[in-house]
Simulated scan of single mutants.
Amino acid sequence: MSLPLNPAFAATEPPPVMEARRWIAGKTFTPERPLLNVSQAAPVESPPLGLRQALAEAALNDPQAHLYGPVLGLPALRAEIAAQFSAAYGGAIGAEEVAITQGCNQAFCAIMATLAGAGDEVILPTPWYFNHKMWLDMQGVTAVPLETGLTLIPDAATAEALITAKTRAIVLVTPNNPGGVEYPAETVAAFRDLCRARGLALVLDETYRDFDSRHSVELGGRPHELFADPDWADTLVQLYSFSKAYRLTGHRVGSIVASAERLAEVEKFLDTVAICPSQLGQIGALWGMRNLRQWVAGERDEILARRRAMEQGFGALKGWKLLGCGAYFACVEHPFDMGSDVLCKRLVDDCAILMLPGTMFHPAGSAAGKRQIRIAFANVDAGGIAEMFARLAAFRP
């Protein structure tokens, strides 16, 4: 007799990236045509030397780095985030309005645990980030899809028609995963106004904020004005990850910016699942914030160069349509008479390319999901991008 299984977990799809890895298990790829893995958006290189030295120094000489720390994170890191984000967004964020988490996925789970329970609803624009959908499914919360059409930009008026007495929050991801699009400032402001009017939370996931083409302190730009609103905390929750900007994926450091009252509820969640975030990871994140601004700017420039290469390549690739491109991702429509889930497996075998089908980012049976593919291009250099387009051009279904 098998052990009981929570029916909400039984109804939750397996992790898509792990599923895609099984497509290449046991397969052999030649040195002449190695696998091009554009399925996952995570840095594969180590952090810069200075950051690694800071981690090593702390590991060797800071006894506190190996002990439990504050549940909501190191005070110095919370204060640094508050100061830098206040300056970057032209607003006022206090250190007490910042919490540190074990990565941004945990930040999402923590804030959602305080907002919605079984039987409630949360609106997610499609294509959605699959881990967001998975968490809601496992909690018995209904993910209400908000179609974004060919622009991949959600519309607040369309979202309003989906709100019911059970709706607790609307989630936006910008720059978007998986769509790549950068949501216009007026779009996020319209969603803020809608959520405020209807008593909902606006959860804004800005994991890829460092790679937003508009977000440059040096150029004086910012992607939105939400934190300039002195009452931002009555509606807005911002999520962020240190994994991408500082290559700290294995250290799991993320953050939540929300009202101090909301973070008091978040603390209950964090204390039961992790007790405290990684001390070494936080030390690395703090060193990075204080010392790597110019290095991160260079990383952004490189990602933006790869974005231009993607845009140019799809502009010349017959039949394919680029829907969105930015940060780490491109979302495209393929031209073939088969579903993207079938096509992506064919591309592994015929082209040695691993991509994720749109079916992993849309509700079951979605026509858009069958047409779309997500390409994570951040780990593919200019030569790899050119090779990817050569293989796609040669593919015959």
Rank of each mutant, 00 (worst) to 15 (best):
A169S: 08
L343R: 08
Y68N: 11
L67P: 03
Y208L: 15
S241T: 15
P127K: 02
V348G: 01
R222S: 10
S2L: 12
D120P: 02
D341R: 01
S86L: 06
E265I: 06
S243H: 13
G117N: 02
A10Y: 06
S259M: 00
L67G: 08
Y89E: 10
R371S: 08
Y68I: 08
A157Y: 10
P223M: 01
A382I: 13
A113R: 06
A378L: 12
Q139D: 10
P75H: 02
G119Y: 08
V203D: 03
E265R: 15
C331L: 15
R192G: 12
L172G: 05
R308E: 12
T101A: 06
I283P: 04
V144W: 06
P357R: 05
E80M: 09
P154H: 02
A107Q: 01
D212V: 03
T126W: 07
V122K: 05
F377R: 01
G103H: 06
T207V: 14
A76Q: 10
H224G: 10
F361G: 08
P14K: 09
A113M: 01
G384Q: 08
F85C: 03
W295M: 13
E387I: 10
E333L: 11
S366G: 01
V217T: 13
M138S: 13
T207N: 05
E206I: 00
T151A: 07
H215I: 00
G50V: 03
Y208H: 09
M289I: 01
A8H: 15
E267H: 04
F242N: 04
L286Q: 01
A107P: 03
N61L: 10
V296N: 04
V217F: 13
A197V: 00
A382P: 00
L204T: 04
T28R: 12
E311Y: 07
I123H: 04
T30A: 14
G284C: 02
A88P: 00
L194G: 07
G221C: 02
L292D: 10
H224T: 06
D193W: 07
R21G: 15
V253M: 04
L204P: 07
R293F: 11
E302C: 09
A305R: 15
E45R: 15
W287H: 15
E19S: 12
R198P: 06
P31E: 14
A116N: 00
R300E: 07
G358H: 03
E32R: 14
L5H: 12
T114V: 02
E160S: 14
W232L: 06
L72N: 05
E218N: 11
G117V: 09
R247W: 13
M355S: 09
D350Q: 15
Y328L: 11
E225D: 14
Q294Y: 11
